[in-house]
């Protein structure tokens, strides 16, 4: 009887520990329309733009994507899909236009920022800031 009880308690503990871990889904491919892939960044990548982008990043992006873009923000663990490591080539090899499309349109966990960041110039500023994460 005692060993049966111990077995049940052990199973319950294993279940609680297992349930407390977050298992991210593998990110599915995110196709970008050609129009956006080829879209040039109209905002020059320089100090003023990066500084403006950094301020917007801190307010809107950092909680999920992390301070340095590694996808380790305080809310990242609550997401179904890992927000990605922006320091790596998987993000840095994308065109500015593709990043603009993904930021403004969003998908599932990633919200659309068209309304939260209504001035397109600000989204381009964020993209210029994302380029500073490149390793």
């Amino acid at each position: 009887m005692k060993s049966k009880m111990l077995g049940v308690i052990t199973l319950v503990i294993i279940f609680i520990v297992a349930a407390s871990f977050k298992f991210f889904q593998e990110p599915k491919p995110w196709p970008v329309p050609d129009k956006y892939n080829k879209m040039p960044n109209p905002v020059k990548n320089e100090a003023a733009s990066i500084s403006a982008g950094k301020a917007i990043w801190a307010k809107h992006c950092q909680s999920c994507h992390g301070k340095t873009g590694k996808g380790d923000g305080t809310k990242a663990a609550e997401l179904d899909t890992h927000p990605g490591d922006f320091t790596q080539a998987s993000t840095q090899s994308e065109t500015d236009g593709a990043l603009f499309y993904k930021t403004s349109e969003g998908r599932k966990d990633m919200p659309s920022f068209k309304k939260k960041i209504p001035d397109e110039e600000d989204i381009w500023n964020v993209i210029n800031y994302i380029r500073t994460f490149k390793k």
């Binding site: 100090a47 003023a48 403006a52």
Partner: peptide
């Protein structure tokens, strides 16, 4: 603002 001043100087250059 600093940003505006920078933006203005940027415009002057471009």
């Amino acid at each position: 603002t600093d940003q505006q001043q920078n933006a203005q100087s940027q415009n002057d250059e471009q």
